[in-house]
Structures are given as C-alpha cells and as structure tokens.
Amino acid sequence: MIAFTVIGGYLGAGKTTLLNHFLTQSSGRRFGVLINDFGAINIDAELIASRGETTITLTNGCICCSLADGFLNAVDQLLALETPPEHIVVEASGVAEVNQLAQYGHLPGLFLDGVLVVVDVETLLEKVNDRYVGQTVRRQINSADLVILNKVDLIDPSVLKACFEWLKQAHPKVRVVSSVRCELPLPVLAGQPMHERRSEFLFPEHAHYTSWNHVLNDPVTREQLEFFAEGLDATVIRAKGTSGGPSGSGLQLQVVGRRVQITSMNNVGLGTRLVAIGLAGQIDTRSLDALAAQSFGGAR
C-alpha cells in the first residue's frame, strides 16, 4: 500500500514550500510528488539526479511528476515505475476541490494518509469571504484533516487569534497547527510507513511538538482501537499504532486530524504500540493515559 497525501490551499498559502519539505527532508522515504507547474518548484540543482519530459528524479530517491496530462495518468506513471514511491503527495491547484482529489487516495493500492490544507494567516479572513473563491476556500478547510496556518511570524497576534477563533467557530472539528514557512516535522505531515519497526515510533525532538507513547504486551481489538481513536481530542494532530497477536497478524491504526483508519495487516509484532503527536504544552499526556486505560482496560 502506498500512502497518499493531498496538499490543498489557496494561492500563496505556501503549498509549494510544504512540498519542498517533503522532497528535501524525506528522511530516506521515497516521495512521489505530483505538481502542476515544474517551474514553480524550486529544487536545488545539486539535488536533481535526472530530468525527463514529465518527471524530475532527485538524488534522495524522490520523484516529481507533472500533472499536465491529467491526474490518473500521473499516478499510473508513478505506479508503473520499477520502484514506485512509498508515498505520493499531490499538490492541488489553488482552487481545487481537495476532497475530490483525496478520493483518489482510496484507489486500490493506495491509502489516504491525509489532506493537508495550507492557509495564509494574513489573508484567511479576507479569502473566506471573497465572492469568487470564498466557497472554495471554505470547502478546502472543511475537507482538511489538518489545517496548516502558515506565516504566523508575519502577523499581529490579535489577527492570529481572530483566525483561530474563526476556524474554531466555522469549522469546529478541524485540527489546526500554526507554522512559519510550513516548517513542520515530517511525522506531523505524514504517517509512518506500514512496514514500521518499533524504533521508528520514536518521535524526533522538536521545539513545538511532543509525543505520547503507550505500550501494551497484549493485542487489542478493533473496537478498542476505534474507541481510543474517537476519544482523542483536538490537541492530538496525529496518532498511530499497531496491535498484533502471536500469529503475527493484527491491526494498524492511523489518525490524522479527524480521519481514523484501522486496517488489517500482517507481520505485526506481538503487543500493542501507540503514539500520539501534539503541540508541546497542549497535548495532555495524563488524559491520554486515562483514555488508553479506559479503552484497553483489559489488555496489558
């Protein structure tokens, strides 16, 4: 299964900056990035391994592919590669219906890792009321698993507060993180690959984000995982987990914002491991402990 991420957001919000983070800080993961305009993406010449008519291959194994010939053709082109990417990231156009693009993440062979919508904090309140794009921008935000409120360094704190308040009021269920130049750690932006080993559960140290970990010796049920995921509050940006029995088969949990996916998978180690990522100072590890106890009461 190949992970699939949609990056949406209106013009100038910072989508391309975000894409560059995927490409240049891929931490060894091979991202396939689908973009409309090669010209707009600013890749260091040293990073470019080769350039084809519709693709650019990077030295770190990532690949950019043009959307000029349509979305499905671009995806199929990536899937047909000798070594297809592990994770496909598509940059939606500024006025795209991101929810529709996100549906491609449910094609067989792919799984939807998340819809990230970047918002320029300086223009948000103006754009959501714009007569031409207001509806579109609202729909984009409403479809987001995670809204990235970008350029917060450029703004008066009162405006930032007003943005948060508007978002909370207009889209109460949407998870929001703020950023400067979309600088967010990869584990916030992308779920971990399926073939996860225990060591990769460790969340890198980061000034603004922190993680909560939980380990049980026994497997848990799908219902228990669902209960746990539904109980996560808005301070949790992402959560993931695996749970396996003695046979090696088990379950995987992926949570990004409101999106909860529980899938069956093989080769899961015995026991249950969970991690949640949230904003430092906001995520409440004690209530997460309590939620875990409540969810998995019987298991140890």
Binding site: N36, G39, L67, A68, G70, G94
Partner: peptide
C-alpha cells in the same frame, strides 16, 4: 493551455 484551474508557465 493547462488543465483547468492549474497554474503553469
């Protein structure tokens, strides 16, 4: 000139 809605050069 491009797919509808998409930016391009």
């Amino acid at each position: 000139p491009a797919m509808p809605g998409a930016t391009a050069d």
